[in-house]
Design a protein around this nucleic acid. Structure first.
Lengths: 121, 121
DNA sequence: CTGTCATTTCCATAATTCATGAATCATGGA
DNA sequence: TCCATGATTCATGAATTATGGAAATGACAG
């Protein structure tokens, strides 16, 4: 990931509505959400949301596809992962031991209660 | 990490000079850099840099301590790690397998010799 | 074709961010 | 104390960003 891509991603994530949007989209899983659904859940006007979605799109953090009259947005996990990778490179570059504890703790934290990595879905 | 902390960190990292600052500080290691050294390396005026450093400080991404007439800044790796954790939580939450490949690739990428983090800045 | 729904685009306004010069603060030396 | 140095604070203007209303686009039904 280039520096400019990272800057765009950081800027996209630095606004409350947009951060909420991607969190909702991630939580929604692969099916994502329709623009209208997002607007209703977050209580933002359609045009405001549209502008924010376009910024997230530009930053490569979401994707969209038309579905009839609606437009479905999905979190672009590759984009998020690239951003995390950018941070990890800077943070851990040359000194992996610095972030190993973090990675392990996330591994634990993200395997909560009702889910078992071992059982296939 | 709270949502507001993450927003502050993203905003802090979304500006070219500030992103350069933390990258230089990380590369500088535990000794960090004096404010004047940073200003000279990045060719930014002292007062502009000071304002940007204060934003990074507020976001918990750097720390400072006085050293005679100068002030030494250091990257706050805990803050960076917290931010990465926030992203990983959102990204991988409930589905660790999504980010495992990323984590492993970073582990590999950060292993080789004394690679230079600064290239491309 | 006409009407409606979902979303986007256009435009104006309000708010925020940013870099700058001037002034100020803090430290250390003469 | 006085002065020089390193850094910060303050006030300003330029630029960017966010938001809302109105209009336009695209898709579908009748």
């Amino acid at each position: 990931m280039e520096k400019n891509d990272a800057l765009a991603a950081f800027a996209a994530l630095s606004q409350p509505t947009r951060l909420d949007v991607i969190r909702h989209l991630i939580a929604a899983g692969e099916d994502g959400l329709l623009a209208g659904e997002i607007a209703e859940r977050l209580s933002v006007r359609a045009n405001t949301l549209s502008a924010n979605l376009s910024i997230l799109l530009q930053a490569g953090l979401v994707s969209k596809r038309r579905e009839g009259r609606s437009i479905r947005y999905c979190a672009e996990l590759d984009g998020l992962r690239a951003l995390i990778g950018f941070l990890l490179q800077d943070c851990c570059g040359g000194r992996p031991e610095l972030c190993q504890p973090l990675i392990e703790s996330v591994g634990r934290a993200s395997a909560p209660q009702n889910q078992n990595v071992m059982e296939g879905s």
